[in-house]
Amino acid sequence: MPLVNYAARELTCKIVYYGPGRSGKTTNLHYIYDRVPTERRGAMVSLATHNERTLFFDFLPLDLGRISGFNTRIQLYTVPGQAYYRSTRKLVLQGADGVVFVADSQRPQQDENLESLRDMHEVLAEQGVDARALPLVLQYNKQDLPGDLILSPGELDDVLNFRQVPRFTADALHGVGVFETLRKVSQLVLQRLSAPAAAGIP
């Protein structure tokens, strides 16, 4: 649930980009970073190896200013995709208000996608989070690659989108689908604030 401090009139959301290694999570954040006015963004923290692999996590805070009387902040995180950074992923996913699952559309990456999606559900389950209640958006990245190298959105849907959540095709490197994905996940996260549970109804 997004953190709302009614006394201080502050609203903070945490959105995590999840997915297999090299699927384009950090690329998403870089694209966003480049298009956010300087006064609206904090420093992007990125801990990467010498070959640009995310070692720990990326963090991009966005300050959206005062909206409806609330100082609104969105924190964007990515997790390291490689399988052996599971504990880091678990740490980053903690307290997430919404998740963008960035899938690699390349055919050979299908198993990686599935494994990562399963891993995400396991991590959420370990944290006692009902994955069905958590806002989730799928992003099928690298759809700009030649058709014979990638799976079509329909094929990816069959494998990954069994919950029929919103999904976007993307070319994160060139920004296609990046803001659309962010907009949708933000919308889902904020909508939860007006859900009965947010109004104090048990």
């Binding site: 709302v4 298009r35 909206i67 609104t72 933000s186 919308q187 007006s194």
Partner: peptide, 16 residues
Amino acid sequence: FTTFLEDVTSSVAASV
């Protein structure tokens, strides 16, 4: 980003 911000503004106004 502006378009995104507009959308978020509407969502916050409608939700928070």
